[in-house]
Computed example of a mutant assay.
Amino acid sequence: MTGNENRPSSTRLDDDDKDYVKALGFALRRYPAETAIVDQGQHAARVFIIESGWGCISHNLAGGQRQILDFALKGDVVLPHSFPGTAPETFVAQTDLAVFEASTKTFALATAKSPRIASLFLETLVHQRALVAQHLTNVGRRSALTRTAHLLLELRTRLERVGGVARNGYSCPLTQYDLADALGLTPIHVNRMLRELRERKLLEFRQGHVRILDRERIAKFAGFDDRYIDN
């Protein structure tokens, strides 16, 4: 289902909120691409709101493997979960990344002062739970082809909500290795899935750009219902 194209996601701050966020104690910071902002196991007492760029949230395994849990996009709130102060996930700047950043203490005070920030926090938890449910279903039950299509449709829909899509396509900085780590596949398998989606005239992924060729047909094929992104 793709009937919610024009409804903004409630878990994001709009431009009018930026000065307000700064007044509540959030500072605008910039991180170069590939910077590890929060390392797994590190003390994690910060909250981030993505201003621009792409972030990557992953769980690292022994031997250098990782499972990408989500990609943080413009307007997303990143709340590193913690076990007495340490993060079980790594948060990396996938591209050059600008974020509004605050300590968890400042964020807690902001939620007490601002119904908007308190609402944002609760909506973020609901939003993240919905994304995790879909990503778990992807790697656990969907076929390699449908999970690849589903993730690329999800990214398109999330970017569309913040003006990041033009002419049914979007810039995507992810490599086939990144997609493999997000989808539970090998890079070679990802390459085959992208080729098959292109041959079926559903989507193209070339030179860092994803173009949806038949949105209605690929949404039906992938079982993609965009309501989980907005709810």
Rank of each mutant, 00 (worst) to 15 (best):
V139P: 00
S143R: 01
T175R: 00
G140D: 11
Y170W: 07
R192D: 13
M193N: 05
L194Y: 03
R161M: 04
L194E: 01
V210T: 10
R142L: 15
L136G: 06
R198G: 12
D214G: 10
V162Q: 04
L202R: 15
P187Q: 09
E199P: 14
G169R: 06
H135S: 07
I188N: 15
H135P: 05
H189Q: 14
E160R: 09
T146G: 00
V162T: 14
L145K: 04
R147K: 15
L153Q: 13
L155Q: 06
H150I: 08
H189M: 15
R141W: 10
V162N: 04
R192K: 15
L136R: 07
T137E: 14
L174D: 00
L145N: 02
L145V: 12
I188H: 08
A149Q: 07
S171Q: 06
V210G: 07
V162M: 06
P173V: 13
I212M: 04
S171K: 01
Q207F: 13
P173S: 11
R200D: 13
G208L: 11
L183W: 00
P187R: 00
K201W: 09
G169T: 05
S171L: 05
L174K: 00
V165C: 05
T175I: 03
I212S: 03
L202W: 10
V190R: 01
G163Q: 01
C172T: 01
T157Q: 13
L203Y: 03
H189L: 13
G140R: 09
L145W: 14
V190H: 13
G169D: 07
I188G: 15
L183A: 09
R156Y: 01
L202E: 07
G184P: 00
R147W: 10
G169M: 11
A133W: 06
Y177C: 02
L155H: 05
L197Y: 06
V139A: 07
R192M: 11
I188T: 14
V210S: 01
A149W: 11
R147Y: 13
L197K: 07
V139N: 09
G163V: 02
R147A: 01
G169I: 10
T186N: 12
D214F: 02
V162C: 05
T146K: 02
L145D: 08
L155D: 03
A166D: 02
E196V: 12
G140M: 06
V162H: 02
M193A: 03
G163I: 03
T175S: 11
R161T: 09
N191F: 03
P173I: 01
E204V: 12
R211L: 14
N168H: 03
E196P: 03
G208S: 11
